[in-house]
Design a protein around this nucleic acid. Structure first.
Lengths: 354, 354
DNA sequence: TGCAAGATTGGTAGCGCTAACAAACAGGCT
DNA sequence: AGCCTGTTTGTTAGCGCTACCAATCTTGCA
């Protein structure tokens, strides 16, 4: 039979082709591409060269069939911020397609709606679940998953539950750092817009903010703290309320970019210029931050990386779960950074002495 | 050897298990689950029942290995609107994971940056590419792909290139319908914010708008037409310009939701209420539309469905390409719909007679 | 020098599925 | 009845890869 045209645009290169080309067994090639030790350095080099030369790339379907570790992973999200979701998806996607994992995506309205979605995933044969914030912080959702004996990983969790694997940044430190920066810019009256009450991250961010304020000997004015829900609209509303008081804050720290964008809009509506009359900063550094005007100063959270990492963690965990290895929660903390753009400035007028 | 624990949380059910359970050959089961004809109705029913009972679900890795039609598809996007991208990804994702396709995602800055990204995809062994707008309308990108002999499908193309497969809505009709609706609401002075000049869809939408205006005997005021780039910021800027003229439009039609949101922000900044003093409408019905305040009246484009469909189309095309079947472009046109929310209203004050 | 212990390679089998062919069966015709 | 056509089912082989074990080659050391 004539050689099939096969995949990759008629340019089918298998592990056998590489093996023949180098003059070793397919098994050895397999070892090299899987980075196993106990391959002589010289052999490894020859194989690698051949892989390069023939432009070989492994057939993931065959690999997962052989290793029996193909996994179906579910991604559960409730959608507070589109921009966040989009970065999140990008990260999940590139990682899961690389590892040949199948993805099943479900959305739900808050933790209450999670049960149905999780049931559906279970029925569809999911081996594990990734939880996007704010679901990741819900003890309710965690409980359901644990009862199902379903491995899962939370992303951007703020609650340090020792029994749950997660990928996070240090929200407390991040919020504190941003707050210190605002204080450095001369701001003394700083407003804060909290995120969704379900999201523990919201609370931690607020605590970081409060701590930094206290540390600088500044008071957190109750009038200047607003409740939001991570949506643009909620940031808009909260900012309108904050700015309706007789004395106004000179800066507003919103717990995510969407709300910060909403706050900017509210300020504009009230005739205030940003950042001339009001500094507004956000959190996350999603695409939203650089698409509004003025572009937002914000805390960068490597969402896409974190999401990708969570896939790897989950895959590990699933493998362990199958082989009966006792569960061990992993907690990965990533670095944040402060991104200064045009929405923040030195406080207007004479700096109020503290 | 003891039965392996295998995938799906220890609950491994293969086609053989189903076959044994029903008392037929695995091949018959395969036929049933693939919906082939030439299976007796009675047999089919029994198999289906068994599939249900055992909660069988096929191993996609094995299937694509056997059918040799596992494909690696590239998704190329340049990012005008995050919200759009996010919906787009969702659609691509759920479809491609169902069909077991591998995904490779690359972004690029406009058509100029596409070459490098496409080279990378080719090197990575992609079998086909999906083009998100506005890349889908670039003849430059299409040319590169054709030279590479790489199958591709464009999403939301407006240009009816007969040689290219695509999934679209009728942008002309959609824009005209929205315009008619605005006229119905009493608006006579309607502004328009165009999208990215690269995107043919922008132009078509503008043509639809113009045609509807002309049809109603209304003039399109050059001062009321602004150039945008599909970003929030560009909508903001364009709207500011439109609204700086002595006579202002009573409504602005932006060619996407991001720009409409920007236009709302600009109006607020100028002290105008939406929709009381200005109606603003968008296009796409992305999450952006319902997350800003007031929520946007817009043209709904089923982005996620369209993206999913594009994956299926591409997969078909790849299969055809491999089997040497001559290429045949497919053009799928989906329905749009008008979504009325809070950003539009009957024109303020006495309706200007035409 | 001889030999155990380790390092390095190769051979075999099979992951779960389906293409391709072969066989069995039904019905309609001469 | 005997044959042909079409429908329904089964059999065989193999997709590309890796787990597992066997074979071979080193090396260190008694």
């Amino acid at each position: 039979m004539a050689r099939k045209v096969g995949r990759r645009g008629g340019n089918i290169v298998t592990i056998h082709d590489v093996a023949r080309h180098v003059g070793v067994s397919p098994m050895t090639v397999s070892r090299v591409i899987n980075g196993e030790k106990n391959v002589r350095e010289e052999t490894r080099a020859k194989v690698m060269a051949s892989v390069e030369a023939l432009n070989y790339s492994p057939n993931l379907a065959a690999r997962s069939l052989a290793t029996q570790d193909s996994a179906r992973i579910g991604l559960l999200y409730s959608n507070p911020s589109v921009a966040f979701l989009s970065e999140f998806l990008l990260g999940i996607l590139s990682e899961s397609s690389q590892s040949g994992a199948q993805l099943l995506i479900e959305s739900c309205e808050g933790p209450e709606g999670a049960t149905a979605a999780l049931e559906k995933m279970k029925a569809a044969g999911c081996d594990g679940v990734i939880l996007s914030p704010p679901l990741s912080d819900s003890t309710r959702v965690a409980k359901i998953l644990q009862d199902m004996k379903m491995p899962f990983v939370g992303v951007a969790m703020a609650r340090p539950d020792p029994g749950v694997s997660c990928v996070t940044i240090d929200d407390f430190k991040a919020a504190a750092a941003m707050t210190r920066r605002l204080i450095e810019l001369g701001h003394r009256h700083i407003g804060f817009i909290k995120g969704h009450p379900n999201a523990y991250a919201s609370q931690i961010r607020f605590e970081g903010f409060s701590a930094a304020m206290a540390n600088a000997g500044l008071e957190v004015d109750g009038n200047f703290v607003g409740q939001g829900y991570f949506t643009y609209r909620s940031g808009f509303d909260a900012a309108e309320r904050l700015l309706s008081h007789k004395t106004r804050p000179t800066a507003i720290f919103a717990s995510n970019d969407d709300m910060a964008a909403g706050a900017v809009a509210a300020a504009h509506r009230l005739g205030m210029e940003v950042p001339d009359q009001l500094t507004v900063v956000g959190f996350d550094d999603t695409a939203m931050a650089s698409s509004v005007w003025p572009e937002l100063t914000t805390v960068r959270q490597p969402i896409s990386d974190m999401a990708g990492l969570s896939v790897r963690l989950l895959l590990d965990q699933i493998k362990g779960h199958r082989s009966g290895r006792p569960f061990e929660a992993v907690r990965e903390v990533r670095d944040f950074s402060l991104i200064e753009r045009q929405s923040s400035a030195v406080v207007a007028g004479p700096v109020v002495s503290s």
